[in-house]
Amino acid sequence: MPEALKGPAAFGAAALLVIWGGLPWLPDAWGVRFGTPYLVFFSLAVAGSAGFFMLLNWGPVRQPRSALAAFASILLVYVATVGGVVAFGYWYYPQFETPRVAALKPGGERVGEQRGRAVFLTPQFSCFACHTIEALGIRGGQRGPDLSSVGRLAEARKPGVSAEDYLREAIVDPWACFTPLPSSGLIECQAVVDPAKTYPQMMPPGAKDRLTAQELGDLIAFLKSLRSAGERDGKRS
């Protein structure tokens, strides 16, 4: 390694040693405990800083010898810059994730439920933009409730109303009854919106006009089948 690059490399190595070898072992009395995501964050910051100083010490680069080489090198810098920023964002912030779908379990869903899952993940209907189904590994948006156990919860949301009918109403006429926040401790849906107890109502209007009867039925069948992972497996067996 050239002499000029040794300094930043040594700094980077020492800082990484402190981050991974020192920070996790600080006494509890100090009240300082950084979780792994922060340690990774600091490591990236150190690596980036060391890399930057290496670049400073690099020395002159060669002028491209042909126009084609100049074009190629310019394009490379451009694509690497934009690609690097996007890649960092994907690691850094969960909203960067577009829905990830876990593999189907053997003997899992019925045909209708599978079609309902497809409706859920169709960008046109955009259910995933606000809803996550953690139990199935579908990491969608965070504004609406996690639907991992919506099938079970729907049975108790409105006394005297079946899970299927409640789900239909919640999709077609979401203003009829507001979904309680998990932290509220409430089970039944609420007639009046309350920011402390219910989700803000942001379901899109006109779902009935956009979804065909078949699609709506499939979506309801899919949602009804979501009873959190354990219960789903039990039901299937």
Binding site: V85, F96, P204
Partner: peptide
């Protein structure tokens, strides 16, 4: 009231 009414994820915007 179009099918594109919703706020997309940061990932989508970044792409």
């Amino acid at each position: 009231v179009t099918p594109y009414w919703y706020t997309v994820t940061l990932g989508h915007s970044s792409i």
